[in-house]
C-alpha cells in the first residue's frame, strides 16, 4: 500500500548527461523528506511522480493503481497528486479566492481555508499584490483544496526571509497534523524537512556514495552491494536516493 517508486531517468543538459535512479516507498499518512544539493534530481523525481516528466523505465504505483510502467501511463490530472511548485505557479489572472477555488474538491470549504491562511482580507487580491509569504500560503491552500492523496512539495520555502519562513513552517506543520497529509517533500535545507517530515532521505552523488560505501563496508560483510543487486538494480553512475539517519547501505533506496 502507499506509494512505490522505482525509476530511472537520464537527464540531458547542454553540458552533461546525468543518469538518475530512484527507489522510494511512502506509506499512506507518512511524511518523508528528501534532501540533496541543487541539480541532484530531486525536482525531477517529484515531477515524475506527478506525471509531468516521463521516466525512462521503472514503475510508479499508488496503492493498487499503476501510474507508470512500460504498459501504463496515467495522466497528471487523474493521479490525485498535489504538487506545490518552487515558484508557486499561482494563476496571475485569478484572485486569491479564485485560485483556491480553481481545483477545489466537492465539499471543500474555501472560506475555512481562507480563514486558516489568514487571507480573508486578501481574497480579492491578485497574486502580484501579495507578499512572498502570502503567495506561499495561497499556493499551499490551493493544493490542499484539491484534497490530493499525496502532497508533493518542491523547495516550498525558497526565497523567503527567515522570519516569514519560521512563521510559515509552524503554520504548515499544524495544517499537516490536522489534515493527516501524505507528504513527499524535497529541500536542500535540513531544518525545513526536520520540522515537517517524519523521515528524511538524502540524494547523493553516486561517486561520493561509492566511497562512503567502501569505507562502511570495511570490516563488514559484502551484503552491502548484494542488497542493491538483489533488488535487480545494478549501480548506475549518477544520483541515488538513500536513507540518511541509519546510514546503513542495506537500507539503500536506489
Amino acid at each position: 500500500m502507499g506509494l512505490t517508486v522505482h525509476l530511472t531517468k537520464t537527464l540531458k543538459t547542454t553540458s552533461e548527461t546525468i543518469p538518475l535512479a530512484f527507489a522510494l516507498t511512502l506509506g499512506g499518512g507518512e511524511r518523508k523528506g528528501i534532501m540533496g544539493a541543487s541539480g541532484s534530481g530531486k525536482t525531477t523525481l517529484l515531477r515524475m511522480i506527478a506525471g509531468l516528466i516521463r521516466p525512462d523505465s521503472g514503475i510508479i504505483r499508488w496503492n493498487q493503481q499503476i501510474w507508470y510502467d512500460e504498459n501504463h501511463w496515467v495522466v497528471p490530472n487523474k493521479r490525485k497528486v498535489g504538487l506545490m511548485f518552487q515558484h508557486h505557479a499561482l494563476f496571475p489572472h485569478l484572485t486569491v479566492e479564485e485560485n483556491i477555488r480553481y481545483g477545489a474538491a466537492k465539499g471543500c470549504d474555501v472560506q475555512e481555508l481562507l480563514h486558516m491562511g489568514e487571507l480573508e482580507k486578501r481574497r480579492n487580491h491578485y497574486p502580484f499584490q501579495l507578499s512572498g509569504g502570502e503567495r506561499q500560503r495561497v499556493a499551499l491552500l490551493r493544493t490542499l483544496a484539491y484534497k490530493p492523496e499525496i502532497l508533493l512539495l518542491d523547495e516550498p520555502f525558497n526565497a523567503l526571509d527567515r522570519g516569514t519562513k519560521t512563521r510559515l513552517l509552524s503554520w504548515v506543520q499544524e495544517i499537516f497534523e490536522y489534515w493527516k497529509v501524505t507528504l513527499l517533500m524535497v529541500s536542500h535545507e535540513n531544518s525545513e524537512l526536520d520540522s515537517l517530515c517524519t523521515e528524511i532521505c538524502s540524494v547523493e552523488d553516486l561517486r561520493a556514495l561509492h566511497k562512503k560505501w567502501e569505507k562502511m563496508a570495511e570490516g563488514r560483510n559484502s551484503k552491502t552491494y548484494g542488497a542493491i543487486n538483489t533488488n535487480g538494480i545494478s549501480p548506475l553512475p549518477g544520483t541515488y536516493v538513500w536513507e540518511l539517519p541509519s546510514e546503513k547501505p542495506e537500507r539503500l533506496y536506489v
Binding site: V75, N77, F85, A89, T143
Partner: peptide
C-alpha cells in the same frame, strides 16, 4: 505563459 501554470492546472484535476 509559464509552463508551470499549465502543469499546476493539470495537477488540480483539470484536463
Amino acid at each position: 505563459i509559464e509552463g508551470d501554470l499549465w502543469n499546476a492546472s493539470l495537477l488540480l484535476g483539470k484536463g
